[in-house]
Design a protein around this nucleic acid. Structure first.
Length: 172
DNA sequence: ACTGAACTTAAAA
DNA sequence: TTTTAAGTTCAGT
């Protein structure tokens, strides 16, 4: 029997020119979207079905938006599209702040920490970025360190590639 | 329950 | 230039 207040999560895979992504939906929204070949996360579940035609309009929207983004076009979701349940409040505030970063721009970890109400919690901001469940639409790739590019959980090659799609190039 | 590390940073030594 | 301290969360021990 499932736990009473936990909504069922369904995993899918999404095949794109840039590899097979993995998406997880719950009844409340998109719970997770991860990069192809993410080192720490399980390989795109082989048994997971293609998103193709699943999850109704939400699935369709995600498909469309993802395709657009991988072609370098802007596409976005309101925060209400995501299901951030069960995540720490501070992380959620960080994610909201980074959701507000305009397409093609970058912010520092310090900026996010300040926006989240705790100017000195810059390290925690980094944590939140690393724990970001919805890559690309919660644009953790648009967050750089004060001096230097900072890090990236999915590997720096992805961070560079994603920023390049937005017309921004990482210098160092 | 404590300790250290994590996609950092500003300030002191 | 190297070291240190700081706020939040999580994984170990």
């Amino acid at each position: 029997m499932p736990k009473p207040n936990e909504t069922a999560a369904r995993a899918y895979r999404i095949t794109t020119p840039l590899g097979t992504w993995r998406a997880v939906f719950s009844d409340r929204g998109l719970r997770e979207l991860t990069l192809p070949r993410h080192p720490n996360k399980p390989q795109a579940a082989k048994d997971a079905p293609e998103l193709n035609g699943q999850e109704g309009a939400r699935g369709q929207r995600l498909r469309t938006a993802l395709d657009a983004r991988l072609k370098g076009k802007n596409a976005d979701f309101p925060l209400s599209f995501f299901d951030l349940d069960g995540r720490p409040p501070f992380f959620r505030r960080i994610w909201e702040a980074m959701h507000a970063i305009p397409f093609g721009e970058v912010r520092s970890y310090g900026d996010l920490a300040k926006a989240a109400g705790s100017a000195k919690a810059v390290r925690a901001a980094g944590q939140a970025c690393g724990a970001n469940p919805v890559v690309l639409f919660l644009p953790c790739h648009r967050v750089v360190a004060g001096s230097g590019p900072g890090g990236f959980g999915g590997g720096m090659d992805w961070k560079r590639r994603l920023l390049a799609l937005e017309g921004f190039s990482l210098e160092a």
